[in-house]
């Protein structure tokens, strides 16, 4: 995992949150985690595929999520309903999309997947052998934790097996 992927995401988050929600962000401490993460109320999961590959997770509490969509749509949300869910997912989509544009300007093209949303506290999400860079973005409406588990793809661009252990296990057995 390379730290150079971090800034495009943070810049993009700052820009999008400012434009859509009029929020100023401050960057909290950065750390690297390899163990599984335990989710907060709402997690948006977006995959990147291309010259860089991996997964980006945006984690926030339900209160923060409701605060964000209420401001974004200009109406009060009390419940994390379908519209609120798609609003938060869209926010993740826009932030990731903008970040990939910035990354492609630095020569690394990638495409993002549609967002998936995981709702429910205390679930574990594992990115297997990808270490994650974890940054907390602090805002007036609460914190958003961004997890980046991204690496550069091998130059041939071929699909590789990310966990090569099975073949080894099989071949040593035979």
């Amino acid at each position: 995992m390379d730290v150079k992927f971090l800034n495009p995401f943070l810049d993009s988050a700052a820009e999008v949150l400012k434009k859509e929600i009029q929020l100023e962000i401050t960057r909290g401490p950065i750390n690297v985690q390899t163990s599984a993460l335990t989710t907060d109320d709402v997690t948006v999961l977006i995959n990147l595929v291309g010259q860089i590959q991996g997964v980006v997770l945006y984690e926030l509490s339900e209160a923060t999520a409701l605060g964000f969509v209420s401001r974004m749509m200009g109406q009060k949300f009390n419940e994390f309903d379908n519209l609120a869910q798609s609003g938060i997912a869209e926010l993740g989509n826009v932030i990731s999309g903008k970040a990939t544009v910035a990354l492609s300007k630095s020569g690394l093209d990638s495409t993002i997947s549609p967002p998936t949303m995981i709702i429910g506290k205390g679930t574990k999400i594992s990115t297997i052998n990808f270490p994650r860079i974890v940054v907390t973005i602090q805002t007036d409406l609460g914190n958003v934790t961004v997890h980046l588990a991204i690496k550069e793809s091998p130059p041939d661009g071929k699909n590789i097996n990310f966990v090569p252990l099975i073949q080894e296990a099989v071949s040593t057995k035979q």
């Binding site: 599984a36 989710t39 999961l45 995959n47 990147l48 595929v49 590959q53 991996g54 997964v55 869910q85 997912a89 997947s113 998936t116 949303m117 995981i118 709702i119 429910g120 205390g122 679930t123 574990k124 999400i125 594992s126 990115t127 297997i128 990808f130 588990a149 990310f162 966990v163």
Partner: peptide, 14 residues
């Protein structure tokens, strides 16, 4: 994409 694993019963994935 690379696989992601969600461990834990009862969460909602949308």
């Amino acid at each position: 994409s690379p696989p992601t694993l969600v461990i834990g019963k009862g969460s909602q994935v949308s």
